[in-house]
Design a protein around this nucleic acid. Structure first.
Lengths: 258, 258
DNA sequence: TTAGTTATGGTCAAGTTGACTCAAACTGAT
DNA sequence: ATCAGTTTGAGTCAACTTGACCATAACTAA
């Protein structure tokens, strides 16, 4: 969103670009790099809820991979990779997610195409970023290794490239979508209690919600279906289980799903 | 947004791709094209309000350019072009818009990255599409020629590539943003009457709105400022002029604007 | 002066939201 | 067997918002 400036005034930029490149450059020279087309990458911000270590209540986590080469070697970054030829953007995101973390998302949506000129010091790269939600069952058996680790979304430290800004934006979108749309259920399994839904909202929005008012609101949405089942085993009145019957939909790539 | 299918089931696709390519192909062979990286293009959906020819009331129009070569030679398409090296995505969209239509947008936001595999029959191309609003003063003096023409958004006919779907999605986004955000004012000049704002809503959403209720709602938003001026010259009570004081903002590329 | 037209302020009923109260239904300890 | 502790789940009430509608104000054209 910009009040666009149609005039000149863009004259300083190329010099800055050249300076940065000179510092970090490894093999190819400036002329070569400027003629080469910008390369295209796909990355994904993956959210899951996990019990907090301290309080035990669910909190937002996301998996990152450690960079094993320059630039930003050793830093943590979003999982991603190049776009191969035989797959759509969404398929590429899905594949990438599976390959780096072993996860299959319950929700996957395009976030934004990031194409600033100085995102990577060594080359011009345009990243089409997706964001995904995975259910806790999935998240529990996710691969974790020396180079793949889960972090609390609010305690990330400094990431490679512009990935901190990307995560911030993904968080903003997640909170926004949660407030309007019917997205919370993709964090949960097929059956859930209304209290679990509330915990999702509280974790993502980082607020406390009145249980009674929240339940009234959720129950008024037509996409929530009461089941006859109850969740046993708590040390209190057993809560009824519900089911989500809505379909995701409004991404242009997913319009056709009935 | 998808319940992603992590499994196989993608086996039919390459065959379909090959068949399409065979029909339309001109020079390069299949192997060459599959190894080449997908090319990156920037396109823009540009909206402006113009008086309808029949009723005289404002309606949504957008400029298209005629394709002068294959594929889809002769058909109308969204203005666009390749991404050059020394500009950000947004700058590229802005430049493209200026070059093809002579317009400077009052609003510009990224819409979506379209990357389906069969968008263009001759090569794999990923389009990062922006959408823009221009004010009527701008729109009036827009270049129009044999190969650039304005069309009513609801009477487009069949466009090149997947551009009909792209326009549909842009329309959906525009209507959505209008209903929530404070975007209507970018169709108008610096000073406007509340009735003009209402006309924007009525044109875009294609409904009739109650003038009294609408004014109450608009006046309750803090970003609208009463001026002491009135619009003279109508054949009725002169309406007060208002001013919009809000800033666009929430696109990740524009977060920094104060 | 009057008819026509839009601007602008107001009322009222229906619906929504947030704060809060209270009974129901379970577990675990005494 | 009973009681304390917990969460579920229903409901009340006032504040606020929304849509339908009415009435007056302020201009022009005839």
């Amino acid at each position: 969103m910009t009040i666009t400036n149609p005039g000149p005034a863009r004259t300083g930029r190329p010099i800055a670009a050249k300076r940065v490149i000179t510092v970090y450059t490894t093999s190819a020279n400036v002329a070569e790099r400027q003629s080469a087309p910008p390369s295209l990458a796909i990355s994904t911000v993956i959210f899951a809820l996990r019990p907090s270590e301290s309080s035990g209540r669910p909190t937002l986590w996301l998996p990152l991979v450690r960079r094993i080469r320059e630039p930003f070697k050793g830093l943590w970054a979003l999982p991603g990779g190049p776009l191969t030829h035989a797959e759509s953007l969404q398929d590429a995101a899905s594949r990438n997610l599976r390959e780096t973390t072993g996860l299959a998302p319950s929700y996957l949506e395009q976030l934004y195409a990031f194409g600033g000129m100085h995102r990577s010091p060594t080359q011009r790269v345009v990243s089409i970023v997706y964001w995904a939600l995975v259910q806790p069952t999935e998240a529990a058996l996710a691969d974790e290794s020396e180079n793949v680790r889960w972090f609390r979304a609010d305690k990330l430290g400094s990431l490679a490239f512009d990935h901190n800004a990307i995560v911030d934006y993904a968080l903003w979108r997640l909170r926004n979508k949660l407030a309007y749309g019917s997205i919370a259920y993709h964090f949960l399994g097929e059956y859930f209690t209304l209290a679990q839904v509330r915990e999702v909202y509280e974790a993502v929005l980082d607020t406390q919600l009145d249980p009674a008012n929240f339940r009234r609101q959720i129950k008024s949405t037509p996409e929530i279906e009461e089941t006859g089942e109850y969740l046993q085993g708590g040390k209190h009145r057993p809560p009824r289980l519900y089911r989500f019957t809505g379909r995701p939909g409004l991404d242009p790539d997913n319009r056709s799903i009935p």
